[in-house]
């Protein structure tokens, strides 16, 4: 059987809210090392990869590797019924056709159980090679969210260019053009506001803003987002979930 208890249930709510508009349904794979998901959006332009480590859960048990197919909209409906401070326990039998979500309020006064029907989902698993990137940029996630939102009101695509000292986001459209530059700033006093650039080679790539805006829905998961860029390769937009795992988005360049 599979059983996992997440003390900070809000994390699971935030993960599902971050991906539910991008992917319709997906298999959640559980094994000894943790809980993961890999899925492409319906246009096959981007890929979502979630991994929550077993040790990030308060309690984790997985006797056999299982894959649980769920419709994200339905999972979201159920998780919206959990309080933000609730602990969430997920349970499923090895050959079960449902997954049970148990929500416990902090003082354990309220205990609720919701069963979600599982479904068979055909999904293609892609191998993501380990790569060394030309540039890695760490920016406050709220800043990234604001940039891609602001630029989407001007154009459809953004050119992200990284040099040693700064990362520049540029777009243009019918009404004009815009560019936003973020300088490297390793703020010691306020680490959550720091912008850090690690560069092997300057790089400039163009991406659809629509997808980057969708990825930015993961902002509540982490104070920073990490962008990894290499010439002619998909960008990785990565949110580290403190002590638990990561949510990564891969987007093919234009």
């Amino acid at each position: 059987m599979f059983e996992a208890r997440l003390a900070q249930g809000a994390l699971l709510k935030k993960v599902v809210e971050a991906i539910k508009d991008l992917i319709e349904d997906a298999n959640f794979d559980c094994n000894n090392s943790g809980f993961s998901l890999q899925a492409m959006d319906s246009s096959h332009v981007s890929l979502v990869a979630l991994s929550l480590r077993a040790d990030g859960f308060e309690h984790y048990r997985c006797d056999r590797n299982i894959s649980m197919g769920m419709k994200l909209a339905n999972l979201s409906k159920i998780l919206k019924c959990a309080g933000n401070d609730d602990a969430i326990t997920m349970k499923s039998e090895d050959n079960g056709d449902t997954i049970t979500f148990m929500f416990e309020s902090p003082n354990q006064e309220r205990l609720s159980e919701f069963d979600l029907k599982l479904m068979d989902i055909d999904s293609e698993h892609l191998g993501i090679p380990e790569a060394e990137y030309d540039a890695t940029v760490k920016v406050p996630s709220s800043e990234f969210q604001r940039i891609v939102k602001d630029l989407a009101s001007i154009g459809d695509t953004v050119e992200i260019s990284v040099t040693k000292d700064a990362v520049k986001f540029s777009t243009s459209g019918d009404i004009g053009s815009a560019n936003i530059m973020c300088r490297q700033n390793k703020s010691v006093d306020k680490p959550e506001e720091s912008t850090e650039i690690d560069i092997n080679e300057p790089v400039a790539l163009t991406f659809a803003l629509r997808y980057l805006n969708s990825f930015a829905k993961a902002t509540p998961l982490s104070p920073h987002v990490v962008l990894k860029l290499s010439k002619d390769l998909p960008v990785v937009v990565e949110y580290h979930i403190p002590d638990v795992g990561r949510l990564g988005f891969y987007l093919a360049p234009k």
Binding site: M40, S43, H44, V45, S46, L47, E124, H125, L126, G127, I128, P129, A208, L233, P234, Y250, L251, A252, P253, K254
Partner: peptide
């Protein structure tokens, strides 16, 4: 989505 490449073109199927 004109000119947009597929992500599957970059990563091989497992």
């Amino acid at each position: 989505l004109a000119g947009q490449r597929s992500i599957a073109a970059f990563f091989s199927a497992k």
